Structure formats: structure tokens, C-alpha cells
Simulated assay, not measured.
Amino acid sequence: MFMNLNLHGTAIPDGLSRRARSFIAHHGVRADVASLEPYREQWLAQGVPGDVISRAVVYQDRWGGMVLPPAPVYESGPRYLCADMPEPSDEGGWWFPAGDQRASVAFSFMIGPNGEFGLWGDRWAPLHASIEGWVESLALTHHASYWAEQVTRLHGDEAKSFPLDGFEPVEEVQGMVDTWWRGPDSLVALHNGEAECFSRGVPRVALVYSGLDEWGLHGQ
């Protein structure tokens, strides 16, 4: 299931870009966490479907205990990745926790019915189509922050109306509510999760990494 171990013993899941693998190898730490398989019978007795339990078990085996550098949004993202008992979704299907928060926030990080990574607040906001997409986004954040000449943070209407003519989506982040875009000399991250998952007016956020050369734009 894992490609290799870095020098610190951190297991690197397969299916990631070279950039994300390097990011985990140099900046990731993996702590020991308990397997969820021993809870299967207990959760089955409480009505959790077997296939949903299997998804949580696989997630825990693949990602459980992974500690990654903080994100620039969502109060820095999960403190570490770790699954727990699945819960039924009001919107259909089942989801389970993706990891504990670093700070006290009004939302939870969850894995959705179709494997999406997102925020659960007033509503479900799937940020990326998979946890791999979230990790790719973190890796791209680190890469772009290092190579950009300037990083500009936009809020609200400025973020919502940022012109993307001439930009193309960055496919590896598997963007849903959150997306990344590559332009002639810039990378743009649109972070809409809190605005989507809360009824009250929470501003959207855009981070513009500008002044990038070819390696800054495409380095893998």
C-alpha cells in the first residue's frame, strides 16, 4: 500500500505526484495510531454498513497518524489525519472524521460518502475529491510559497471575482469547492470551503502566488 519510507520512517502512500511524495518525505511525520478493524463488530451492531467500515479501516491504515505542515486556511487544517466511527449524512450516505482540528473551529474535517475530503459545518462542503487531493494542495502550497516572488491574499468579492482568463485548472488537487489554477506566471488557490458550509456570510479566500518561473509553475 505504501511506496517507501523516508529517512524518518514516514510511510508515503502511493498514487501521489512526485511533488507530494517529496513534500511528505521532507516534512511529514507519522505517529502510531490504532487500527479500526477491532471495532468492526461493535460498529456493525450499531448499524454502520460493512462497506463503510471497510472504507474507514483502509483510510486509517493508509493515512492514520500522518502529521503534515499547517495549511494557510481552515485554521491550518487537521492536526493529524485519523479516522473514527462513521456517521450517517443528512444528505445521504455515510462519512467519517478525516482528522482532529488544530484549533477550536465550528466545522469538522470529514471524508464524504464518495471519498471526498471536506468540511462539515451547517452544510457539507467537499473541498477535494479525495484526501490525496488535499495532500496535493498542501504540497502545492508549500511549493508555490517557496518559489513565488509575491503572495497576495484576497477576501470576499475580490476573491470571488478574481479573473481566471488564461488560467487552467491544476488537476492533481482534484478540486471541488476548493480549486487551484495555473496561469502564465501565477498559481491561484481558491478556498471556498467555509463560505460554502456556513449559512452566515463567511468570506471566500483566494491566495495568488505570482512571479513564478517555469519551475515554480510546473515543478513536480
Results as ranks from 00 to 15, higher is better:
A45L: 13
V29M: 05
H27A: 03
H218G: 03
R21N: 10
L81I: 01
R40S: 01
P169T: 14
R62N: 12
E172C: 12
A103T: 06
S199R: 12
G112H: 09
M66W: 01
L187D: 06
L138E: 08
A195K: 13
L212P: 04
H8A: 09
Y74I: 01
W215A: 02
V57F: 09
C82N: 12
D51W: 11
A45W: 07
R18D: 13
P78N: 12
P72C: 12
R19A: 00
M85A: 10
W120M: 15
S130T: 15
L16K: 08
H27M: 02
V173P: 03
A159C: 04
E194K: 11
V105R: 03
P70Q: 07
D90L: 03
G77L: 01
E196P: 00
R153C: 06
A25P: 01
N4H: 12
F2V: 13
H26Q: 05
V48E: 10
L164K: 03
L207E: 07
R21S: 11
F96V: 06
G201S: 13
A148I: 10
D178K: 02
Q46E: 15
P184A: 15
D51R: 14
E214K: 08
W181R: 05
Q174Y: 02
V48Y: 14
R102H: 04
E75V: 02
D165R: 05
A56K: 11
G201W: 13
S137R: 01
A125Q: 05
Q42W: 15
R62Q: 15
M176H: 14
S186D: 09
P70N: 05
A144S: 15
S161F: 09
A71Q: 10
D100K: 13
V173Q: 02
H142M: 08
D122P: 04
S54K: 14
A98F: 07
M110G: 03
P184Q: 13
L7I: 04
A25C: 08
S35Q: 13
G64S: 09
E132L: 02
W124D: 03
S22N: 12
S145W: 09
F162Q: 10
L190P: 00
R30A: 01
G175D: 01
H27I: 00
L154R: 11
I24A: 00
V170F: 02
N114S: 09
R55T: 08
P163E: 05
P13I: 04
E158A: 14
G216W: 02
V58L: 06
Q42M: 14
A206L: 00
